[in-house]
Design a protein around this nucleic acid. Structure first.
Lengths: 193, 193
DNA sequence: AGTCCATATATACCTGTGTACATATGTATT
DNA sequence: AATACATATGTACACAGGTATATATGGACT
């Protein structure tokens, strides 16, 4: 379990609404954790019940009112406690690898298609990391209030970049192997004939 | 969702009991997907209800009877269909990275401790890959019936190895950075005094 | 004029998964 | 003799998370 704690970490920087958090999430933690809007609202409700956060309603004309959550002492304590705990799960969990494992059961072209998509997904990720995320962290690191935080944001970004590059390299190798396998099989067929 | 399909893939090789599957799982898919015993039995029940698999009870003396599941036509069709589908989730999901992201909020020694554990976990994984998993795949690849499958097992193993190496390298870099940060802060403190 | 997107909050339903517990016995170790 | 481990199958409970849907409005685009 982690979403409430991830949200706690974001609210710890500054009071936010569920909608704010969705946007902040997408620019940061989203790269390592997923969260849909309904899930965020649900978590916020739980967290308020636990006394980790409290809310104030800001009247707005035209748009719906904003429900701004701020962190409470109990929430700060919970955040620090959670951070100090060793992460529950170190294992990876990746559907794609299970499909690769059973790769022989599908046509090689199909698996190649999956891998090409995965490769492209990671190429796009890499582009996003370098053109969007990196400049944001750079800008934040110049502000004194976030200079130290930005160091850790940079570390996680570096992980993302290394991960994406590793996946791209592996996909290239795997695609080459699969292509070779196909050629080999075709040659064998010719031979038999 | 994936466990029923992963199990389907294993049963497709040969009829198995829930307990068999747990053992096979731990030697293969476990590196990319997790499954506890109760979850496996639960999934098998669902799969039988769906008509993907069927069971026969083997009487045993002394030990409890074995409930052996075999794959049905509907199950084979389902497996092929699932394999051809693009994987639902391409995103990673890693608590550790969320903790790194909020790293400033905890003592640097604590984060370093987490990273050292993660590093060690991956060093052990790597050792297991090289001394246990690789030989098994090598041996299987020599049997004609599994030679082609072993190629794909090898691809997923290669991913595991690259991933573990990447994590180890990143941990080394991050630990160096954190160490440097600590030294810097101590020097600054001295200066102020 | 009509459609889509962004802002803003939320409920309902279903599925997947983790943890604890229950049961039964043979074999190996201390 | 007692303890732990491997074999073998499950139930019960609780929580996390995904998807669909509802509501309300302002602004931008076609």
């Amino acid at each position: 379990m982690s979403l409430p704690h991830a949200l706690l970490g974001l609210i710890n920087y500054q009071p936010s609404t569920g909608y704010d958090l969705k946007n902040k999430f997408q620019q940061s933690i989203h790269f390592f954790w997923n969260a849909a809007l309904p899930h965020i609202y649900r978590s916020l409700k739980q967290m308020e019940k636990e006394g980790w956060i409290a809310s104030t309603i800001e009247q707005q004309s035209g748009k719906p009112n904003r429900k701004v959550y701020r962190i409470m002492d109990k929430g700060k304590k919970e955040l620090l406690h959670w951070l100090a705990e060793p992460p529950e799960e170190l294992e990876m969990r990746h559907t794609m690898l299970v499909k690769v494992f059973f790769g022989k059961q599908m046509p090689p072209e199909k698996l190649a298609e999956h891998l090409k998509n995965w490769r492209e997904y990671n190429v796009n990720l890499l582009k996003q990391y370098e053109t969007v995320v990196m400049p944001v962290i750079q800008r934040q690191s110049e502000k004194a209030s976030y200079a130290e935080d930005a160091h850790y944001w940079g570390l996680s970004l570096d992980y993302g970049i290394r991960h994406a590059r590793m996946v791209i390299d592996w996909c290239d190798q795997a695609l080459k192997d699969i292509e070779k396998g196909k050629v080999k099989k075709q040659k064998e067929k010719k031979h038999v004939r």
